[in-house]
Amino acid sequence: MNSSQQIELVCPAGSLPALKTAIDHGANCVYLGFKDATNARNFTGLNFDPKQMRDGIAYAHQRGGKVLLALNTYPQAGNWSSWTTAVDRAAEMGIDAVILADPGLMAYAAKTHPQLRLHLSVQGSATSYEAINFYHERFGIQRAVLPRVLSMPQVEQVIANTTVEIEVFGFGGLCVMVEGRCALSAYATGESPNCNGACSPGKHVRWEQTPKGMETRLNGILIDRFADGERAGYPTLCKGRFEVNDETYYAIEEPTSLNTLELLPELARIGVRAIKIEGRQRSPAYVAQVTKVWRAALDQVMRAPQDFKALPAWMAELNKVSEGQSHTLGAYYRPWK
C-alpha cells in the first residue's frame, strides 16, 4: 500500500502560455520539447526556443513546479550532436529531468551530467520490469513512462519488481500501438515518431471535398471519407476507416481519447508515482481544462481514496476536449484488447 505517496500530475506544454496555464491550474510538472526533431511532437508552431524554455523553467520553479524536457526521438549517426547539444543545454538551464528513449543518449547524459535526472520515455517501449531494470542498472534512470498496453495487474507487477518510479498515461490521445514500435507513419509518409518526431505529419495531409464526401488523405493514401454532417477528423492513419473482408470500419481504432480518471484509486493503491496528460499539440485552453479536473480528482484521491468517485461533471468536462468526444480505458479494460 503506497497511497501515502504523492502522485505527480504531469501536464503537456506546447508553448509558454500552455506551460503557465498548466502550472497555474495545479500541475506538479510540465513536459515540453525544443523546436526540432529531438522530441516526439515536432509540429510546426509548437515547442520552445532556448529563451522561452528559460522563462518557462523560471516561471515553474518560482511556483514550486518542475519542468521535464522530452528528448525522446532516436538520434542517428548524422544528427547525433543535435541531441547531445539539447541534453547539455537542458542541464545548463537547470531542467528537472530529461525524458529519453535512446540508450546511447542515456549513456551520454549519465556520463556527462551525472546529476541530471533521467526518465525513460514511453518511446523506449519498456513494458516489463526486466526492461526497466536494464535502463536503471545501465544508466540510472529514476522514472519510466509505461506504454499504453498493460492491464492494471500487469502495471502492479511491474511496480512490485522495480525501484524505478512508474508514470502512466491518464488522459489524451491514444496510441493503439506500442509507442516506439510503430513505423506505420514511416511506411506511408517516410516520417516516423521514432526518427522525425511526428506521426501522420500535416504536410502530407490533404482534405478534399468530393461527390462521395470529404476525403482525407495522407501522402495520397485515402485514410477516411466523411458523409455530409459527419465530423471529419484529422487523418491519423491508425484512426481511419478501412476495408477488411468487404467490411468498412475503424479496423485499428476509433478516434477516441484515453481517460483513466475512474481508475485513480486503483492507480494510487498499486503505487503509480505520476500521471501523464497527453497533448503538447493542444491549446492552452485544453491544458487548463484538463489540468483543473485532474488536479481536483488527484487531490480527492490523496485525501480519501475510499470515497473517491469520478464526478459526472469532471467526465463531461474531459469529454468536451476528447478526440471524437468519446473516451476509453484502453488496455486497462480487457475487452478493449
Binding site: A183, A251, K337
Partner: peptide, 19 residues
C-alpha cells in the same frame, strides 16, 4: 514489413471477438 505491435488484437477485433 512488420510495422507495429499492439496490446490489441486486430484479427479478433475484425471478428468482433475479445482477445
Amino acid at each position: 514489413l512488420p510495422l507495429a505491435h499492439s496490446a490489441r488484437c486486430f484479427t479478433a477485433r475484425h471478428y468482433n471477438l475479445q482477445k
